[in-house]
Amino acid sequence: MPALAALGRGLALVAAVVLAVALGARHVAPVPDLVLVLVVGWALFRGPWAGAVAGLAGGWVLDLVPPGAEPLGAHALAYAAAGLLAGRFRHAGPVAAPRVALVTLAAACVVAGVDVVRALAVSAPVDLTGTALRVLLTATAGALVVPVVVGAERALLRRRFG
């Protein structure tokens, strides 16, 4: 049963990346970072280590699903750090939407920060306005989608333990 749940989470990550890629092909821009939203949801529900695992898996999926990104593994490490950070903000009981948005914002800043530093290191152009807009959009999407992710995880737990 846990293996099945892990498979489901993996498929959700793949679906999130394919959805983002297909939205891009329809010239929707900016696209919120749906992988990060899932990672933050799992990190807030299960803690920093589970968040790091989810981030690692999500980054790998993002790097491998075509067209992917170069070099392999860079996104995995960045998302793992973001998941670890988001998991630190887990606490018992219901979580308010603004808090979820703030945690997603912090995680998105980690991922975007790694990208920006990598671009600056090779003196490539950086569009700070566009990046900030994407980070804010991801935070908004986090406030909307994380409750759904957490709800699904709760339902899974209830089914397992009654």
Partner: peptide, 17 residues
């Protein structure tokens, strides 16, 4: 035809499928 646009880099899309 372009069927997928990858995650945007700091200055816009970098890879497409």
């Amino acid at each position: 035809r372009v069927v997928g646009v990858g995650p945007s880099g700091p200055a816009g899309p970098e890879r497409v499928t």
